[in-house]
Structures are given as C-alpha cells and as structure tokens.
Design a protein around this nucleic acid. Structure first.
Length: 592
RNA sequence: GGAGGUAUGGUGUAGUGGAUAGCAUCAGGGAUUUCGAAUCCCUGGACCCCGGUUCGAGUCCGGGUACCUCCGCCA
C-alpha cells in the first residue's frame, strides 16, 4: 500500500533514528502484512536486535510506543517481534473519495508520460487458423498493451508479418498447383473442415498447406516440387517482387481470417510490418555487409557466413548464421534489421515470444549489442498443451480458437437463458458473446506466463469462482444498483457530487473494499513494469470479491432512502472495475 | 550430452527473505419476505528430495529427481 507507506516512512525514520537504528535498509523490510487482520504494513524487528542489544519484541514495542500519531494510522501493535500498522479506514475512505486510487482513461487522470512503447506480439505465420496455443501470445500481448494504456503509457501494438520464406512459399505453391479434389484426397482420414468455417480463408486455405506438406514428403515428383518451392523462397529472399506479390495473394486472406478471430477476442493492432520490407529496402544487405567487418565474423566452406558469439560468452553452438551460401539472408538477419528499425520509432521495445524463441532472442540480442543497439524487453511464455499432449495440427491434436469461442458463447448462452428467460434473444446473444470471449481470455491471462498450461474445456468454460463472468457479474450488479437508484427517482449526478460525512465506523466489507481499492494502482504498476499481467488479473478478482463483501454488509438503497456515502463508494468501485476489466479485455456489460 | 524454464492441498493456481502459506475448484454443512444467488458464510486438505547461507527459506545458493523448451545455412 504505497499511499500508507509514503505517510509512514518519514515517521518511522524519525523513531528508528531516535532509538539508534543506523541500518538504512529498513525501508525494504517494511512489507505488506501477511496477516490481514494484523495490519496493512509490517516491520519485522529481528535485524535490529543485534545492533541495539535488545529483543525484537522489546524493539517492536518501543517503536509502537513512540510512533507519532497520524490520521492515516489506524492501529499500531507489536506482536512477536513484528510492528504492525493498520491504516485508518476513515483515512482510506478519504483517499478513495479524493480520487487517489483512480486509474485509466475513464478517470481522466493519466500519468504524465512521454515515452513511446512498441509492443510486438502474435506475429504468427499466416498459414492457418489460430489454435489455443498460438493464441496465448495474442492474449498476453494484447493484455500488456491494454494495461500499459490503462497505466497511461503511449503504446503501439504491432504485428510482424512473415510474408516470405518457406511456410508462405508452401502455401503459395499449393494454391497454385493443387485442386480442391486433390487436397481432399490427400487429407483423407484427417478431420474435415468444420462446416461452420466454410468460407473463412484461414480454415479453407490451411488445407492446401497441409496437403502440400504431406505431398512434399510422399509424391513421386517430390524433388521437383521441392526445387520449385525452393526457387520461389529464394526469389522472395532476394526481394523478387513478382514472387512476393504471389505470396501476398496467398497469405493475405488467411491473415484476414486470423485477425477476424482475434477481433472477436477484442484484439487489435495499430500497425503491420512485413518482413520483406527489410529485404526490398536494402537494410538487410547493408546489415550483412556490416557484419563482414566484425572481428567475430566467419565463413563456412560453402560460403555461408556467421558471427561467432562464443567470443561474447554464448554457450553451446556459438555460430550464429546470418547468410546462406547462395548469399540470401536468414529469418534472424531480417529480425535484426527489423529491431534496428523498431528502435527508431520508440523508447521502449517489448516482444512477446514463445519459450522456443529463447535462444534465437538471445542471439539477436547479442548481435544488437555488437551493433551498439539496445536490446528489447521480452515477455516469454510457456506453451499451452492439451491433456493428450502437445498441440499438433498434423496429428489432429488441436483446439481451434474459433471453435473454443463458439462453444464458450453457446455455453454462456445456456446459462443466461436459464437465469433470465425474460431476456430477448438479441440480449442473450450479446451477453453470452461477452461472457464467453471474456472467460476465454481471463482463463489464459490469470496464469503466470512462464507456467506451462494445460488446456481443459471445463476450465476454459468455467463461469463461476475465479472467472471473468464472476467479475462481470459484480460489475453488472453495481450497475443494477445505480439503475435502481434512478428508478427510485434519485438524481445520480447530484448524489455523486454531494459532499458527505466520512463514516467513522465501518462494517468489515466496506473496509475490505477500501483496502483493495487502495492497492489497485500499486498492483497495476507492478504488473506493467514487471510484464506480469496475471498479477492484475488476480487483483481484479480481489476487487470483485471485495465489492461482493461490501454489497453484503452495506445497504445503498433501503426503503427508497439513499445512503450517499455507500452510493459514492459503490460508484467508484464500479468505475474501477469497469476500467480494469477493459484493461484485461473483459467486456463490462451492464446487465447479464 | 549442453543450455534455459518449471515443481505449492485430490485438481488448477497466487505468493515482494518474515508471523497461522492466499484464491478457485472439489467434498460436506449453512444463509435469501431486504439494493441481482453467476452471490455469501462455515468445515476439510499443500510448499518434489538432500544439503547450505540467514535471527528467519515456499522464496536465495549448491546438488539430485521429474516434466517442458531449445541446441537447423527452417521460420
């Protein structure tokens, strides 16, 4: 609780100095109390014992006795060598009422901040529909973008389009050379396309890609095919405009289909940058010429070139190849050119990458350092598996995001329909779409990115307990209260702006809510700066829970009479929930 | 074989060197003539193993074990 800390530190400074503590590091020992009942902040006094020649119990007591009283401090107690300080709930209420805890756009209180942040995420190869595994990148990345915006930062969300190279080459070849019948014949025995996605290009065209993958290994003329694909790929890597155009015609509809899926999840991008740009504009060849002058530059027998990063401390295989024997560039080379370009347009760079890219990212980072460039921050995440094992399109072991979202919507629809038979079909559809997509996002975002994750239908579709609909429900209930007040003929604006006495004694649920609201900004700050969105997801869950406790203990509207303070607090909590939900991509519907 | 990551109730997970390890699910019990029961309350149950550092270790260090990822002139 940063706001309490700011009040407390000068006071404690004085007391500690007066009793003879010289260790200036005590500030880092002032921690959030583990025992919520004991206090908000605690100072363990064990380290002072040696210096002062007294027991920690005595020291804690002595500090408690000599601590100056302050409006912010509610209770001070010394227990078992710990000094516990509890905030005065009335002071917390004042902080909340004075807007100290408001965050985000809707509150018009952005931190002054001129840094430009570029977040690159997703950047999936445009060769097939999103499955749940690939979507973790998009959900993490988009949530990070949203949280930065909530925090007041200037963010650009970017998708790096892999518009050249073998995967797109295979897709282009397949679309040109294979007929629908041949594709289906090749894929016989594999799962057929879900009828629902007929006409959606990512689902349609991936079958051409899959058929080609199998034909490349099995058909009698596979050497010829391989040569043909190889010719196109190399032409693309040399910037052949005709080939690049053919590639684009092949992948663009696929990419559009993929973006449609992301859109449904509330995920958007500000800019798309094509990989080929760095080949056609000459950046890549200039870069490769520059590498030649490096002392760690080396050449293989066939003329391929590399940098020996072993000399810079890389372990394992130390040669980092940037150019093939035929003179064309490699993916990583283009990635470096891309990073140099990105650094020209931002102050901070964040990439969201799967853990399989760790070595690659390290090589790129070391090379950027070699070039005198800064290295990006990277948010790595672990893969999503299925209970049957690794997700694999080839083995048919895959859950498509489109299917998951359909199912989520259908199940949410069943719940809404049951609870509210009075709602119109349109309303049910809208609510269940919001609840379904939000539940899917939240289920993925609430887990720490570096934790392996096994996808389970029943968890992804859970609408109770620690889920998005749980949060949405608390928010909807707060909205409902406000509507009830209007129905009772109360002027909301007047009530919101009228000044009111701060209560001097409060029920437990109200104190809970105030405390949660007062750490909200602290948690957001940590989630953003440490790139750990799940911390904020858990905080929002806590906020919803606290609001429920407040609702339980405090009446806002009773017998037509409005409790003004309770109403104001409820409205502030409602707004905080709403903006926080937006920060996580949860849709804040007002009724459900 | 080398490099990186992870290990917490039955299950899924949170946890800033600090006290009685939090949440959800699950199992069992209870709460509504009152602002929305997708709610709330009560009970049950966990820090992989062995050492070390420390006044104090789930957390830091070393060594095991298990699982995941990488070690392409692929992207």
């Amino acid at each position: 609780m940063q706001m309490l800390r700011e009040v407390l530190e000068p006071l404690l400074d004085e007391v500690l100095m007066s009793i003879g503590v010289t260790n200036a590091h005590w500030r880092s020992m002032l921690v959030r109390s583990r025992e919520h009942d004991q206090g908000d902040l605690s100072l363990p006094c064990f380290p002072f014992a040696k210096e002062l020649g007294k027991s920690p119990i005595e020291i804690a007591q002595q500090i408690a006795d000599s601590l100056e009283s302050h409006f912010a401090i509610g209770e001070v107690n010394a227990v078992a060598g710990y000094l516990n300080i509890k905030a005065n709930p009335t002071w917390l209420a004042q902080q909340v009422m004075d807007d100290a805890v408001r965050i985000g756009d809707a509150f018009g209180k952005k931190p002054a901040n001129n840094t430009h942040i570029l977040i690159e995420h997703t950047s999936a190869n445009p060769n097939g529909p999103f499955h749940v595994g690939r979507a973790r990148n998009a959900i993490l990345g988009d949530t990070l973008v949203r949280l930065h915006r909530l925090y007041g930062n200037n963010v650009r969300a970017e998708y790096y389009v892999d518009d050249m190279g073998k995967q797109v080459g295979v897709l282009a070849w397949a679309l040109e050379h294979l007929g629908k019948e041949e594709v289906e014949r090749t894929l016989v025995g594999r799962e057929s396309i879900n009828e629902k996605w007929q006409g959606k290009a990512d689902h349609e065209r991936v079958r051409w890609y899959q058929a080609a993958q199998s034909i490349r290994q099995e058909r009698s003329d596979k050497e010829d095919i391989e040569a043909e694909i190889g010719r196109m790929v190399h032409a693309s890597e040399h910037g052949d405009e005709e080939v690049l155009q053919a590639f684009e015609n092949a992948y663009q509809p696929v990419l559009d289909g993929m973006l449609e899926t992301l859109k449904r999840l509330g995920i958007d991008f500000d800019t798309f940058t094509k990989e080929s740009m760095f080949v056609t504009n000459g950046d890549v060849s200039k870069l490769m010429e520059k590498f030649k002058t490096f002392e760690i530059h080396g050449t293989a027998d066939n003329g391929a070139e590399f940098l020996d990063l072993g000399a810079r401390g890389l372990k394992g295989k130390t040669e980092f190849f940037f150019r093939r024997g035929d003179g064309s560039s490699l993916y990583a080379t283009r990635d470096i050119a891309y990073h140099i370009w990105k650094w020209k347009q931002c102050d901070q760079l964040i990439n969201v990458l799967g853990e399989d890219h760790k070595l690659q990212a390290k090589q790129v980072g070391m090379t950027l350092t070699e070039l005198g460039e800064k290295i990006p921050d990277v948010l790595f995440y672990s893969f999503i598996k299925l209970p049957e094992g690794k997700m694999s399109t080839r083995k048919g072991n895959v859950v498509y995001m489109d299917d998951l979202l359909e199912e989520a919507q259908a199940q949410a629809s069943a719940v809404v329909g049951e609870i509210h038979p009075d709602y119109s079909p349109e309303m049910v559809a809208e609510i269940s779409e919001a609840a379904g997509t939000s539940a899917v996002r939240f289920n993925i975002i609430k887990v720490s990115p570096d934790k392996g994750f096994t996808f389970r239908w029943e968890e992804a579709l859970a609408f109770e307990g620690g889920s998005a609909p749980f949060i949405m429900y608390s928010h909807a209930r707060a909205c409902s209260i406000a509507r009830k007040c209007v129905a009772a003929g109360i002027d909301l604006d007047a009530a919101a702006n009228s000044s009111t006495e701060l209560p001097s004694s409060m029920p437990k649920g109200m104190v809970e809510l105030l405390r949660t609201m007062c750490v909200h900004q602290d948690v957001l700050s940590k989630a953003v700066n440490d790139r750990r969105p799940h911390l904020f997801a858990n905080q929002l869950l806590q906020l919803a829970t606290s609001f429920n406790a407040f609702y339980r203990d405090c009446m806002i509207l009773q017998d037509g009479e409005l409790n003004v303070f309770n109403f104001q607090l409820s409205e502030l909590a409602r707004n905080l929930m709403r903006t926080s939900m937006q920060g996580l991509g949860i849709v804040p519907v007002e009724q459900m």
